[in-house]
């Protein structure tokens, strides 16, 4: 059973629906006590880091997520859920959860024809094998909508990149935490297959 964290950051029912389609049982909670019991977590979100972190702190969900991470519970972050997994974000700036060393940064594009936010389908290039990325081939595309992206301190934690003017990190992983800047729940069949792999992932 997957616990989907609701922290007032965007429409997360699309994640629930996609899990269902991918054959993964899931439910939504905004209660840190319920989250503390979770055996598998999806931490989604669309929106701004400052208001998201404020809500997480006030609700006590930030501690629940850190505890779950320490306890080895497999956690999947999506979009904002990936950005606030790092220590801080340039958006605000904001102090974040710190599950992975590093910082979330804004696109600094040299090519003025490129628009921000980066919206649409883009290639995900796998740099390093990971059970959750199994089966992703060259040219496979996923759906993005964002202006910031996660930039881990260590290259070791970067699993995939995408190209928008320059390569940017779009999948990060550290121990039992994995997170994507793209939206598997909006990425058609390839996204549903990704969620199906998360269903079977033990966090190793």
């Amino acid at each position: 059973m997957i616990t989907i964290i609701d922290y007032n950051a965007g429409n997360i029912r699309s994640v629930l629906r996609a899990c269902k389609e991918a054959g993964a049982e899931a439910f939504i909670t905004n209660d840190p006590k319920t989250a503390a019991q979770a055996t598998k977590i999806i931490f989604p979100g669309v929106g701004a880091a400052p208001s998201a972190m404020k809500y997480l702190k006030e609700s006590g969900m930030d501690a629940a997520l850190r505890d779950a991470f320490k306890a080895g519970v497999p956690i999947l972050g999506i979009c904002l859920g990936a950005q606030i997994g790092l220590e801080s974000s340039e958006e605000g700036p904001t102090e974040c959860l710190g599950l992975i060393p590093g910082k979330t940064v804004r696109f600094k594009l040299k090519d003025k024809m490129l628009k921000i936010p980066h919206i649409g389908w883009n290639d995900v290039k796998v740099l390093k094998a990971h059970p959750l990325l199994d089966g992703i081939k060259e040219g496979d595309q996923f759906y993005f909508v964002h202006s910031f992206y996660p930039n881990p301190a260590s290259r070791e934690n970067i699993y995939a990149v995408s190209d928008y003017g320059e390569d940017f990190c779009c999948a990060i992983g550290f121990k039992n935490y994995f997170a994507t800047q793209f939206h598997p729940e909006k990425s058609g069949r390839l996204g549903l297959e990704f969620l199906e792999r998360f269903k079977g992932w033990e966090g190793k």
Binding site: R13, S14, R17, A18, K20, E21, Y143, V145, E185, K186, S187, G188, R189, G191, L192
Partner: peptide, 8 residues
């Protein structure tokens, strides 16, 4: 539609 279509 949202439970049938997994694209934006």
């Amino acid at each position: 539609a949202a439970s049938q279509i997994f694209i934006p």
